[in-house]
Simulated assay, not measured.
Amino acid sequence: MIIAFSVTPLGVGEGVAEPVARAVRVVRDSGLPNRTDAMFTTVEGEWDEVMDVVKRAVEAVAEVAPRVSLVLKADIRQGVTDAMTSKVEALEHHLADTGDGATAVSE
């Protein structure tokens, strides 16, 4: 399964980088495949291990924020592994296709 989630500390002012870094550290330390961008952190693994990581990430932020908001989106497909990479590769393949059967070459 893949989960994309965002943890937002509330009640800490405008600067949220340090509390959010606490959540991202939990994800990175988990050893599960993950990726962080400006809006979400994506993590891949089995249900129990991924949900445990999300819970611990929220708890890490809650240690320094009086309130925490969590947004979560999940893609649940049994038996699928490495979907974080393969989904992007499939998209890039289609983007490289010029529509006439040829593939665009980047320089």
Rank of each mutant, 00 (worst) to 15 (best):
66 P>M: 09
3 I>Y: 13
23 A>L: 08
40 F>V: 15
34 N>I: 06
57 A>L: 05
15 G>H: 13
19 P>S: 09
46 E>A: 15
93 H>F: 05
23 A>D: 00
7 V>N: 01
94 H>C: 10
67 R>N: 11
18 E>F: 10
55 K>G: 11
12 V>Y: 06
17 A>F: 09
84 M>A: 13
29 D>V: 03
74 A>C: 14
48 D>W: 03
87 K>V: 11
38 A>E: 11
57 A>P: 01
24 V>R: 00
30 S>L: 11
72 L>N: 00
101 G>V: 13
85 T>S: 10
87 K>M: 13
21 A>F: 11
18 E>H: 05
33 P>G: 04
24 V>K: 01
20 V>E: 00
103 T>I: 13
88 V>R: 10
39 M>C: 07
31 G>V: 08
17 A>S: 15
92 E>Y: 04
18 E>A: 15
76 I>M: 09
60 A>N: 00
104 A>W: 10
87 K>Q: 09
52 D>T: 14
88 V>P: 04
17 A>P: 05
18 E>C: 03
106 S>I: 14
77 R>Q: 09
7 V>H: 06
46 E>G: 15
106 S>V: 14
78 Q>N: 12
27 V>R: 00
69 S>M: 12
2 I>F: 08
26 V>R: 00
28 R>N: 08
87 K>Y: 05
62 A>H: 04
48 D>K: 03
2 I>A: 06
48 D>N: 09
21 A>S: 15
97 D>M: 06
7 V>F: 02
72 L>P: 04
21 A>I: 11
64 V>C: 04
54 V>N: 00
41 T>W: 00
18 E>S: 12
29 D>A: 14
85 T>D: 15
107 E>S: 14
5 F>G: 02
80 V>S: 07
102 A>W: 10
57 A>W: 02
29 D>L: 04
102 A>I: 07
86 S>F: 08
31 G>K: 03
